[in-house]
Design a protein around this nucleic acid. Structure first.
Lengths: 196, 196
DNA sequence: CGATATTGTAAGTGTTTGCTTACGCCTCAG
DNA sequence: CTGAGGCGTAAGCAAACACTTACAATATCG
């Protein structure tokens, strides 16, 4: 009998490194050679774990999203009677924005590939992302007066937009860290419950 | 004496086609071969007009931005006593969002290249973009009560964010046209003057 | 005309990149 | 032990790409 395959474990071991490379470099610049180098293996080993580069990227999309959501759930789990979960999330993003690499991978997938499968993966992930935020807004508003407020769906999209612009401005150095924090907290608050 | 060079005219003639190709396809997919084909010339003719592909892209960034601003100025120039300029702009974008290709070219430049010169061009352009919107917000609020409203800088970034998310959702088919229109008008209005 | 620079056409070059093949070593159940 | 499969290493292929070179045709203006 042959030795048992460790494909699954190896995949789990290398995926964080692969995802990190895609988030940092984008799709094209993360060449298979670079991916392999970062994983400290040879290219063809990656090809034994995934069918092609496209599959590596799709796995990375899911991985990065799950990582981000994991952190958000931790923030939500912190017991804090003063501030609600949604507010804590906003504050957390204002401080740690961009660290997950989520938006970088979205941008890369959107503009560097036109592969139907990648677009579908992005669509799915973005849908979950939006649903998560909308759920937080709903929880936040639960029991409060909501007349005159933005609909939850609209508010969730607008908050995702804040994240996008924060990402771009960070990458280009358009805002100071202070400015970006201010934008997140003030505009986020306004969208969340109508208070400037 | 030789015949006079028509380089300048030719550049102006081909730039719209080149920019259109970059906006549609992104940076890499708009290969020099494709660009030439769309211009109905041979590749090396493009290289007589611009030093390299990078220069073609930078010229396209400026061109697309100028085109977009030109349209916005037309919208602003329409005499309409009922609604202010900023409101008309928001409504216009809600209807015609994405047609200019501005955001597509920004995304392409951001995630497909790491060239310092391209990033600088994007930085400059984004700065002008933000300044333009901030100016419109200032005009809109001029003479009105502004206590309790978002600062102009923050509001302008948040509105740019609306544009970003509208672009992504359009590209992935995440929102209906109706939903996107609603998002633009409602969230835009809220950011503009605090009214839901 | 005629000298001269511009324009159009065509073929090619060197590099990068995704992906494959070939092959020998190692591991572990029977 | 043994041998069937997993594993690591290395070399290389075909395609795509940005960019170049060579050259003939053409238009301008003294």
């Amino acid at each position: 009998m042959p030795r048992p395959s460790q494909t699954h474990e190896k995949r789990e071991q290398l995926l964080p490194l692969v995802a990190q490379a895609f988030a940092e470099l984008g799709y094209r610049r993360a060449t298979t050679a670079v991916l392999a180098q970062r994983c400290e293996v040879r290219v063809n080993i990656l090809y034994r774990l995934w069918a092609d580069k496209k599959a590596m990227f799709i796995a990375s999309i899911d991985y990065v999203y799950e990582q981000a959501v994991g952190i958000w759930r931790e923030v939500l789990a912190e017991t804090d009677d003063d501030t609600g979960g949604a507010e804590r999330l906003l504050r957390h993003e204002a401080e740690h924005y961009g660290e997950s690499g989520l938006h970088r991978i979205i941008f890369a997938g959107l503009s560097e590939t036109h592969e139907p499968e990648i677009r579908q993966a992005l669509r799915d992930m973005y849908g979950r992302f939006h649903r998560f935020i909308r759920g937080q807004i709903a929880d936040h508003r639960d029991g409060h007066e909501t007349t005159g407020l933005l609909g939850e769906t609209v508010a969730a999209w607008a908050i995702v937009g804040l994240g996008n612009v924060a990402n771009i401005s960070r990458e280009l150095g358009l805002q100071t860290d202070r400015g970006r924090k201010k934008m997140f907290s003030q505009a986020g608050r306004l969208l969340l419950d109508g208070r400037g």
